[in-house]
Design a binder for these strands. Sequence first.
DNA 1: CTGAAAGCGCTAACAC
DNA 2: GTGTTAGCGCTTTCAG
Lengths: 341, 341
Amino acid sequence: MLAGKARMLDVARLAGVGTMTVSRVLNNSAPVSPQTRERVQQAIKKLNYRPNPFARSLRQARSNSIGIIVPNFYDPFFATCAHAISLVAKQRDYTVTVATSDEDAQFEFTEATLMVLNRVAGLAVIPAAMGKNQLHRPEFRTTRIVMLDRPIEGQRFSSVLVENRSGSHAAVKHLLDHGHKVIQFLGLSEKLYTLNERYRGYASAMCEAGLTPSEHFTCRTMEETCILIRKAISGRQPPTAFFLGNNLVTRNALHAFSQLKIKISDDVAIIGFDDFDMADIFVPAITVVRHPAQELGRVAAELLFEQLARKKVARSKEQVVLPVELVIRQSCGCNVETRMP
Amino acid sequence: MLAGKARMLDVARLAGVGTMTVSRVLNNSAPVSPQTRERVQQAIKKLNYRPNPFARSLRQARSNSIGIIVPNFYDPFFATCAHAISLVAKQRDYTVTVATSDEDAQFEFTEATLMVLNRVAGLAVIPAAMGKNQLHRPEFRTTRIVMLDRPIEGQRFSSVLVENRSGSHAAVKHLLDHGHKVIQFLGLSEKLYTLNERYRGYASAMCEAGLTPSEHFTCRTMEETCILIRKAISGRQPPTAFFLGNNLVTRNALHAFSQLKIKISDDVAIIGFDDFDMADIFVPAITVVRHPAQELGRVAAELLFEQLARKKVARSKEQVVLPVELVIRQSCGCNVETRMP
DNA sequence: CTGAAAGCGCTAACAC
DNA sequence: GTGTTAGCGCTTTCAG
């Protein structure tokens, strides 16, 4: 028998009960006697019955589906988060609809609106960096939303973040322990919450060591980064180490160093925030602060489902902050022996 | 006025028409006089009316949503394809639900079934490599499905592929032009369609040059790859160049070369299939055959929507094959000058 | 514990 | 061109 053809009425007839009893067995929404339940389940199996999700959603005015909005899918970090969220959703028999904001709060708003019109049960969002966030608008008042990676200021939304500051602090401390005195922070944009936090972690470590922080926040392209680094290197107090704010900055910086014939860990030491696929293969292997991307998605999804289980939209916002890990390889100056098979 | 509160009846009353007229204006499903249409549109706007997607789907027995199934999201190639598909879907006012198969045909089947039960209008799939494909089963007879990147043998499904053979042929030809005589092919698995095709392209180029192909198809881990390469290098006819079947193999091989202290382009030349994020930053920069991942997703999505527009499920299968591009950098032995900003 | 009736919001089919 | 009727398949409500 083909799935999706039988209706609830067919099941009810075969089991010799009313449709409501079938519905109750399916949803555990009211007690059903064990014998009746058994008969109904037999009938369901026999007919290969599956409830029609639209009829159900139409009646209940909400679907068994959650929405995910991330800036893009190119950044493996975002892709990994999205994947982790969808794993949890699958586990709970929810489907997932996805959309990307391209870091634009306006697009994010459009996508979120569309999802709400499609009656998603809730939303998991990595908020767009550009523009004014719109998710606090009244039309989302009744929508459960959880933020990942970046919080939204002064709002009701729960969020799951990572230890940006302490992670950066530890990384910079490691560079200081290697004897570096002039360490520069390279960021992507002042608009990004994570970059700002990481800068603070960096700055506090520098200050504690009695050193002056120095930063460039605009490593958006390889060209820009190259120019910035060249200028820094040829200055009066050339940095002997760099702390790179995220994987995009790391990418740009690596390119710049190669262009400028600067040898990493001979000429300068570096540590990046956010691990990436080739970090351990690079020569020298790049020391990084590792983001628990998978965990971030998982926890956010669980938080969302927790909220869905509650009757009312929560007024209080929860914040979960996940630990990060300093993965020491070679670019920091450590001489870690690499394994030979 | 909050969206999603007004019903079609409210609009009809305000406009002084029947609900069917509203429906017709909304769907362009039948002619409506300009004046009436105008009145209806005014009412829609005034009430901020949005049709209820569930009621619509319930009635039409299908949703305005397509499903995407890819092996995983970690591989940027898959993520990019998925993104490109969802862009097209958005353009056509379709929502997208996603799922991953983990390269397992059984999981793929489960996810596809779930999506069909959720009445997706169609499916875009990068078929799982492991296990016997299940998408030809009768329960999918009425489902529009388009395959990307990998076809399914002898089935009714349209697919969008890339020029695996000729791309590989060109890459190997390039290595031959550099004077290499012993070139080895490194693959990931014989189970992967793409790897097999690329091997054929490699082999034909070798044969045409009067040389013997030589391959290893099991570069699944860095350790395995390392052992294979070491053995090859220390053999009687050590390869002076390698052609790497996909980005995972390239990754493993790069790791192995670094472990074995083999200098790329000094000791051996390499070309990889599939561009990757750090390829141009590596020292030396890696020459690759570039996959048009974005294009692949776009074309597949358009093919799918074309099929959706047709009344009946197409019996004939179409195949689109997209060109690839040899991106010459340095690992092949070319001395391409890198730009300085 | 169980069932019958009503109706969620929309559109196909048929009037006019 | 337009309106009326019926019903998609389910669950809420209320009555037993």
